[in-house]
Simulated scan of single mutants.
Amino acid sequence: MLRPPALACCKLYISEARNSGALRAIEHAAAALRPLAVLVNTFADDAYNRVGYTLVSPLAGGAASPPLRCAAFRVVAAAIEAVDLDAHAGAHPRLGVVDHIAFHPLASARLEDVTALARAVAADIGDRLQGPLPFIPPRREFTGTAVPTYLYGAAHRDGRTLASIRRQLGYFTPTSPGGEQWHGAPDSLLPVAPDAGPRTSSASNGVVVVGATPWVDNYNVPLATADVSVARRIARAVSERGGGLACVQAMGLAHGDGATEVACNLLHPDAVGADQVQERVSRLAAGLGVGVGQGYFTDFSREKVVELYLQAAQAA
């Protein structure tokens, strides 16, 4: 097994999981730079109409255009071309076709190593999406318009959190009459000026949020109830914001016919992990007479992600 070099991980969350043609185009873009940048995981959720891609690449010391920058942009451009946010509907909140891009350091990499990468990708999306990008071979003119882009975490000058910019942009407010679904695009006139890109968003693209943070685990716990208000009550009590577990963010969401779940971000999984979340959700749900299923991760652990990358590098 190769000794792990300094690696960067990029997780891209796309607002589409039902259009097979769009997914093929996006996945082709994600795999285009293999083995320089390796797609190690894809997680699609039909109820949420959302898919997550995990890309890993070595950090090219001093290079202006590391492979992960190119790979991330390819995925964004393919998604913008293939998906129309105005026609999108799903049970998970979102702000854009490419809803969220998160960069994390792996192995011996440092947070500051991926911070510059996140900022560069945000600039590519916000300022250069509509023109040719010389660092992407072959040179190609993209037809999409530039997309408003927001930074968070270490990539933002003030360290703004992901939750705070999402809250400012109305991310957590459902748009369906029943309050369980998100339909169409957010308002075109944005309440907060973007860090890159135009001041207004298009109905077909929405906006993109890009950040750099230490590793985050995503862990979801199914609930045996169709009542979203119950799921939200439990999620609130689990989350740090609601007085629950430290470094845990949680949402109660509809998840298919007759089911809901508590969807969690574990911001410091070494300190507060999935077992503690599972126990807390189970205890709170029992008090409300609600059954609980076994939770699940939407991605591999950081150790497994490194292992999968190294296996791909060895096989190349």
Results as ranks from 00 to 15, higher is better:
Leu267Ala: 03
Val207Gln: 01
Ala259Val: 03
Gly179Lys: 02
Ser204Ala: 15
Ala91Val: 01
Val40Lys: 05
Asp217Tyr: 06
Gly243Cys: 07
Asp158Tyr: 15
Ala6Gln: 10
His268Tyr: 06
Leu223Pro: 00
Arg18Glu: 04
Val277Ile: 04
Val76Gly: 04
Val305Thr: 11
Thr143Pro: 14
Gly252Lys: 02
Glu303Gly: 04
Tyr13Gly: 04
Pro67Met: 12
Thr149Glu: 12
Tyr296Ser: 13
Gly90Gln: 06
Leu111Ala: 09
Phe142Leu: 14
Ala122Phe: 08
Arg69Ala: 11
Arg166Phe: 07
Glu16Cys: 12
Glu112Ala: 12
Gly242His: 07
Leu111Met: 06
Trp182Leu: 06
Pro214Val: 02
Ala102His: 14
Gly144Trp: 12
Cys264Leu: 08
Asp113Phe: 01
Tyr53Gly: 10
Ile101Phe: 04
Tyr171Asp: 01
Glu240Ala: 10
Phe142Arg: 13
Arg18His: 06
Asp127Cys: 13
Ser301Val: 06
Ala259Trp: 03
Arg157Asp: 15
Asp187Tyr: 06
Pro5Phe: 04
Ala254Phe: 00
Leu2Asp: 10
Ala316His: 14
Leu284Gln: 00
Ala8Ser: 11
Val98Ala: 11
Val209Gly: 02
Thr145Tyr: 14
Ala77Glu: 15
Glu303Gln: 05
Ala185Asn: 05
Gly273Tyr: 05
Ala193Leu: 14
Asp217Phe: 03
Phe103Asn: 05
Tyr309Cys: 05
Ala120Asp: 10
Val262Cys: 02
Val221Ala: 02
Arg241Asn: 08
Pro194Met: 08
Gly252Tyr: 00
Gln314Cys: 11
Leu23Ala: 05
Thr149Tyr: 04
Arg50Gln: 07
Ala313Cys: 07
Tyr13Gln: 04
Leu7Glu: 06
Leu253Trp: 01
Ala44Pro: 14
Gly243Leu: 08
Gly291Tyr: 00
Ala235Cys: 06
Ala263Val: 10
Pro35Tyr: 03
Val75Gln: 01
Thr149Pro: 00
Tyr296Gln: 05
Leu308Asp: 10
Met1His: 11
Gln278Val: 11
Val210Cys: 03
Gly211Trp: 10
Asp270Val: 03
Ala185Lys: 08
Ile14Leu: 07
Pro137Ser: 04
Val208Phe: 02
Leu189Ile: 09
Thr54Ser: 14
Ala44Trp: 00
Trp215Val: 09
Leu223Gly: 00
Tyr296Thr: 09
Tyr171Cys: 09
Val272Met: 03
Leu162Ile: 09
Arg94Ile: 02
Ala155Asn: 13
Cys70His: 11
Gln311Trp: 08
Pro58Met: 14
Asp217Gln: 10
Ala163Glu: 14
Asn218Val: 08
Leu39Ala: 05
Gly21Gln: 15
Gly170Ser: 04
Gly244Met: 03
Val56Phe: 01
Ala146Val: 08
Leu68Val: 13
Gly293Phe: 00
Phe297Pro: 07
Arg199Asn: 12
Arg69Ser: 12
Phe172Thr: 10
Gly159Arg: 13
Leu267Ser: 04
Ser164Gly: 13
Ala146Thr: 12
Ala312Gln: 10
Ala79Ile: 07
Thr260Val: 00
Gly144Ala: 15
Pro137Ala: 05
Leu85Phe: 10
Asp86Ala: 15
Arg167Gly: 11
Ala72Leu: 02
Val83Cys: 11
Val38Cys: 08
Gly242Ile: 03
Pro198His: 11
Pro93Tyr: 03
Gly289Ala: 01
Pro194Cys: 08
